[in-house]
């Protein structure tokens, strides 16, 4: 382990670090939006759309991000749709993440106790009121563990962007290894960089999870 080499590589890694954080943030926010839309459509069983979104969720969840990215980056240009690597990366991540988020939210909505729904009905609520006042508040609280797991998962999935040459952390480390043959040093910085991102995220999420647990009712 040569500290001088690590020291020299830090400015390059700092740039990659920012890019990984930025891509993760955009990917997570996009995924949550897609996930909410998709789970609402599935919850209200909107005709046709809900079938399309169910198919989307299954297709995205059961195929690797790497192939999804290859498809976007290499196969779409053949069809005349050319996008930059970063656009492909973000679209791919949101495609994958949206499906995972949708699954998590749907699980939360379905987990709401039936006695809660029956009580709402007994109070004379219609379907929309039930959804707004009973199912969603409790459902989102119940889907918090899944949301936390998905956020951690999506941040780590940005490492796969390295295959389409987006200069995020993993790609940067590989580039440096390829140029200078210093695998121990660069892999060490890479692992530390991921730890710097992941440890606060994991701590914040587990704190939130504990807070939200009081948000469930009944039982």
């Amino acid at each position: 382990m040569n500290w001088q080499i690590i020291d020299q590589s830090l400015p390059i890694f700092a740039k990659a670090f920012q890019l990984t954080c930025w891509l993760s943030l955009v990917g997570i926010i996009g995924s949550i939006i897609v996930g909410i839309i998709s789970s609402l459509i599935q919850y209200f069983k909107v005709p046709i759309l809900s079938q399309i979104f169910t198919a989307y969720v299954e297709l995205a969840r059961n195929t690797p991000l790497l192939i999804q990215l290859f498809f976007l980056y290499y196969a779409f240009p053949v069809l005349g749709l050319k996008m930059s690597a970063e656009t492909c990366g973000i679209i791919g991540l949101i495609f994958l993440g949206g499906a995972y988020m949708a699954e998590g939210f749907t699980g939360g909505f379905n987990g709401v106790n039936t006695s809660q729904i029956n009580s709402g009905k007994a109070l004379g609520m219609n379907d929309l009121q039930l959804a707004h006042y009973v199912v969603f508040p409790q459902g989102f609280a119940l889907s918090m563990p899944a949301l936390a797991a998905n956020i951690i998962f999506l941040i780590k999935e940005t490492s796969i962007f390295s295959v389409i040459a987006i200069p995020e952390l993993t790609n940067t480390a590989l580039d440096l290894i390829g140029m200078y043959y210093r695998s121990n040093e660069y892999l060490f910085v890479l692992v530390v960089a991921y730890a710097i991102i992941m440890i606060p995220v994991i701590l914040i999420l587990s704190y939130l999870e504990k807070r939200v647990r009081y948000g469930s009712f009944g039982n």
Binding site: S159, T170, N184
Partner: peptide, 23 residues
């Protein structure tokens, strides 16, 4: 467990691939 939760799988592959033979 936390180490494996923090490090992406692709990085685990590289760790095994580069560090085991060299070190």
């Amino acid at each position: 467990l936390e180490f494996f939760r923090i490090v992406p799988t692709i990085v685990l592959l590289y760790l095994a691939y580069y560090i085991l033979p060299r070190t």
